[in-house]
Structure formats: C-alpha cells, structure tokens
Design a protein around this nucleic acid. Structure first.
Lengths: 346, 346
DNA sequence: TCAAGGTGCTAATACGGATTATCACCGGCG
DNA sequence: CGCCGGTGATAATCCGTATTAGCACCTTGA
C-alpha cells in the first residue's frame, strides 16, 4: 500500500490525482459551501487516491493551521499511576477519560513537567501546555502562580477542586464540602453530641478550608461546641488522647486515612467506636490505606467531577472568545451511612 | 505580565527586542555555532524580553518544523482507567509514566480512537498518531492491519506484548511465558504429577499461544500427559468436572480469574486444593477478581515491561533513520510460590 | 459581441518556529 | 584604493494544512 519512505502529504495526493493541494484539502474537509465548488468527478478522483494510498492528514500541521486539536491536557502535580496516589486519582481520570472518549478527544498527560527533581510546574522551559486545546488541572494543592499565569495567558482550563481567585476567578468543578460536613454535624447533633472536634489541618488548600468552614458554621448553627485538633506530626494515639481529654464525643476527621488510624488506636486503648467515640470521615483517602473500617462520612463524586470538568472545558472551548463567564460548579457529596456514628452517651 | 489577548510569538519578541524573528529563534535554541553568531549584548536583550514576557515556544509549530515532540503516544484497545481493566493496565502505565517522566516526555493517551461505538482503531479518519514522536501499543489483542500499517508508514512504535510478524517483524517487549510455564510444569512433574491440563483458550493472541506452547513442550520434555481443557462458555463447575473425570492432578490455568473460580468451585464440591488438585496460574488476571487465593504461578513483570518499552522506543527514536534492527525482547517472569501446588497423590 | 453571472479550480497566504543562504559592515593589508 | 576575512544579523524558505481571493472558462441574454 504505502511506501515505507517519506510520509504522504496532500501535495503528493494532489500530484497523483492531477489537482492542486488546495483541492485535496477542500475534498478532505468535505466543503460543499457555495463559496467553493468541486466537480463530483474530481472529488471522486481525489477520494479514490486518498483511499488507495491510505493518506491521513498530519495532525500537527492541521493544528497549526486550524488552532484546534481535539487534545485535552491533563496536568497533575504528582505522578498519577503509582499505587500510592492511584486510589485517589483514579476515579477522576476515569471520568475524564470517559468524557474525552465520547467527545472524540485524546488526552495529553503532562508527565514531563518536573524541573529536575523539583515539584512539577506547569510552565517549564518548553512547556507543551499549548499543545492541547485546553487543560484539566488535578491535584490537591495547585500553585497560585501557575493559576495566575494560565488565566493571564488565556489558556482554557478547568480545575478539579475549588480554587480561590488567583488574580481572577478560576474555573473549577469542585466537591461541595460545606453542606456535606454540615449534614454530618446535624446528624451528630441530632444524636445528642455536644462536643465536636475537627481533626485535620483545616487549612493549606481550599478543600480542607471548605470542610473546616462547613464544620464551624454547622457547629454554630446547632449550638454545639467545636474544637480543632491538628494532626501534623502527631500520632493517632496522641490525637485520641486529646479527644478523650477534652471530652469530645464526635470527631470529624479530614483525612480518612487518619480516621482509620484513630479507630485502630482506639481499639488498642480499649475504647469502642462508635460507643465511646463517634468518627466521621470527611471525604476520600488521599493516602493509601487499607480501609477495613466502615466509616460514616460522605463520598466525593470524583468520577462525576472528572466528567463535568471535561464538559465544562468543552463548553469553554466552544465559546471560543471567552465571552462566557467563568464556570464554577460544586457537586454534591453523597452521605455514606457507615457504622462509626452512634448516639452520644447518656 | 502578559496581556490576556493573543498569544505571544517569536515575531512579537523580535519586535520588542528590535531584532528579527530569526535572531529570537537562534537565541532560544542557544546556537553558538561558528556558522551563526549573536553578539552577547543582543543575546542578553532578547533573553530579557523573553523573561519579562514569559514567552514559551508553541510546541505545535516547533514540532512541524523540527519533526520532534518529546511526546510519546500510548495506544490501548480499551479504556485504561475503568476499574474493570485498571488492575491489568495499571502496572504497565506505571512503568511507562516513570520512564517518560525521566526522559522528559509527555504522554498522549489515544482515547478518541473509537469509531462510533466500535472497537478502537489506531487509524481512524483523523488519526493523531503522528502527533507523537513514537507510540507504545498496549492490549492483549492488537489488530494485525493496524500493525502492518504502522510498520508500512514507518511510524516508530513498540508493542507491549510479543507480536507475530505483520508483514515485517514487530518491535516488542513481551513476557517470556514459555520458560515460566515450563518451570511450573517441571515443578509439578517433580512432585509426581503425570496428568496435566492446560485450562484456557491457548490461542487467539500471541500470549495465550506462547503459554500453550510452553506447556506442550514442557509436558513432552518431562514425559507427562497433557490435555487441553477449553473454558469459553463453560462454568467453573463444568471445567472442574472435566478435570476430575480425566484424572488430571495439576491444572495450568491461563487466566487467574478462572483459577480463582475453579478453586472456589472445588471448595463447594468438597475437593481440597492442592490436596486433590493442584492449580497453577499462568500470569496476571485480565478480568477483575478478588484474588483471595494464594495461587502458585508466576508474575508478569508488567511495570518493567512498560519501562523497557519506553526505553526501546527512545532508542528507536534516537536511531532516527531506522538503521537499527527491530528491537524484540522477552522479559523473564518471576515464579510465585503460592500454596496451590502440592505433591500428587499416592 | 460583449457584459453579466455562474462554475470549477488554483495561487497565494497564514499558522509559528527552525534553518540556510546571504548581506552589510568594519578593519587591516597589499 | 580595492580586496579580503571576520563579524553580526536578516531575508527567504521550509514544515503540511486550511482558507481566501481571484482567475479562466462557459453559458446566457440583450
């Protein structure tokens, strides 16, 4: 069929069919406008040559001329495939891939964006971000400067996870943490819990901040007492100690991996969960853990977030000029019944 | 920093710095040849503008002119992220991503290659395969026509998994099934097993064929009796029935998911494994199963295969012209001790 | 017989960057 | 004075496709 030598171009097809390169392009793009007319026989002749040679247009040249690729970039600040992070990233990617496939788009994974042992950055010396039509950002913490730059350069993108403004509003699809946390607090309060604690950083990135905020607001709304128990640099035992010492009966744990560890620590200490202490998990584990506990909490709609991010990105791309306003959506989290929440003692 | 309007080009940089586009390109590419000279001050002035504007070269245009991308394509005949296939594909991707990251390459996932509900094909109407420098092929069965076409068009690629010739030798890195299967057969024979069975298709694609071949050769070598028990359309119970009826004492099961099912079926039937029947699993599960059995068998070095494929692809790309010979490698499988192999009865 | 209007195709150009060939300039030397 | 060699930069061209403007030809009508 094809010679192993140089790749075929429209020029070659044109020569064989005895027409101009323009005509080949027109036939290929199936232009039937009033502006441009091709005689049916000519069209057929060109198509025949294309069929016989198996010619396929060079996507690079196409992109250069057309400014459109049907390639969506996916940027993550960590490798996505290692098992350590796979459990967390996988559902997002699943949604992204599904939606991209339906839209006939390919996915470009920016795996090279690491500056020599450093953290990944979007803009390194020869960033390939612009190769994609647009880009999905994935990661718990996203670099503010990168965000600002993406906005400034007018690169279409959608962040997965809510982001604070970075010079301008950031397009995102996030998980609606506040109401989810609030619902859990309401439940706990309804079961008689009065001393509640937020266990986690509660700050650093938007998502912990959102959860913390939801917690504070809900605690205030139900008139309970809420404290903040930090976790960094502390063992589950120490955390558990503080919880007991302060008379907390329901702990809202930011990171399910911590929740699991605390449950285990409680078991060794002779405490029963949820008899002595209720544990509520706020989201999905970002660290690999063996989740052998049926935690009460909520489910982050990760797959849906992936899908929706791609959909929104597509809309932005369709919009073209950027006249449409910044898409910002929060998707509801689904409560998970679990078995680590029980009525407060007494 | 940058205006939100149109993207910056070398032309813009040139205008600002008061030089020509050529000069900007030369400075960017750091050309210090004797052929081309740039005065240090001019160079500095251009670099300053580049720094201030944050200019980054358009990778598409670059690719068109340079014929090089640092983008590696990854083609799979199925979606890689769905949990159904994730367990199988994941280790390959892990190896691929690792290696690509080290080499400073990005990964392009061809997710769009599906022709309207059909199976994925590499060459659809507007294939973007050529956008990548080269491409890694992943999948149990690979379309022969696609392979032939890749070879014919001289597109650099490496298949993960051994492939028969498709008009010409196919570059691959595969798992060395034959010796692995042979080693298992030797073990079984050493433990007194005389009636062995190969349970699976044993054909269809290269990898089952390789395993079957290894089985046949090994059985012949040790002078045992080997039969073939097909699985398609049969229940584990039926398969188990045939094994018992024919007096097989060691079953070599192509697909670990089947092996697990057979072990369970045996349990329900009151047979003990490996007391009554030894089960050997030939590879990794390609269907999602809860592997709650400690199967004796071997490990396919999937991550290593992914890495090696990318390395070989890189070599092919370095080689450029194609003077180097087709890389074909088989990686050794590691035996897994497990607990489903025991001495034959009597 | 010639303008008007339609038809079928192509030349020219854009897209953004890399490369090659060439040019302008200056100082030194015969 | 005129030639030469070295220096520093640029105009021109290419990569392969898409698009726009326009050309050559033919028919029709007055």
């Amino acid at each position: 069929m094809t010679s192993p030598g140089r790749r075929l171009t429209q020029q070659d097809i044109a020569r064989i069919a005895g027409v101009s390169q323009t005509t080949v392009s027109l036939v290929l793009n199936n232009r039937t406008d009033a502006e441009v007319r091709i005689a049916p026989e000519t069209r057929e002749r060109v198509l025949k040559v294309i069929r016989e040679t198996g010619y396929v247009a060079d996507p690079v040249a196409r992109r250069l001329a057309e400014r459109r690729n049907r390639i969506l970039g996916v940027f993550t600040y960590e490798a996505v495939f290692p098992t350590a992070s796979a459990d967390f990233y996988h559902p997002f990617l699943l949604g992204i891939e599904e939606c991209a496939e339906e839209m006939g788009c390919d996915l470009l994974l920016f795996t090279s964006a690491r500056a020599a042992g450093e953290r990944r950055r979007i803009f390194n010396e020869d960033s390939r971000v612009r190769l994609a039509d647009g880009c999905v950002l994935l990661g718990r913490a996203v670099d503010r400067d990168d965000l600002a730059r993406l906005l400034a350069e007018g690169i279409p993108f959608v962040s997965i996870g809510r982001r604070d403004d970075a010079g301008a509003p950031v397009p995102y699809v996030g998980a609606d943490y506040s109401p989810a946390v609030r619902a859990l607090v309401d439940r706990a309060a309804g079961l008689g819990h009065r001393r509640l604690a937020y266990v986690g950083t509660g700050a650093g990135a938007e998502s912990p901040a959102d959860r913390m905020r939801g917690f504070r607001e809900a605690v205030a709304a139900v008139g309970a007492e809420g404290s903040h128990v930090p976790v960094t640099g502390r063992t589950p035992e120490e955390i558990l100690g503080e919880l007991s010492a302060t008379g907390v009966t329901a702990a809202f744990v930011e990171e399910p991996a911590d929740a699991v560890a605390i449950v285990h620590a409680a078991g060794e200490r002779g405490l029963t969960i949820p008899g002595d202490l209720s544990i509520l998990a706020l989201g999905a584990p970002t660290r690999p853990v063996r989740v052998d506990v049926d935690l009460t909490g909520f489910r982050i709609p990760r797959q849906e977030m992936g899908r929706r991010a791609v959909e929104l990105l597509a809309e932005v791309l369709e919009g073209g000029g950027g006249t449409t306003k910044t898409p910002q959506e929060l998707l509801a989290c689904e409560l998970v019944e679990g078995s680590t929440l029980a009525p407060a003692r007494g």
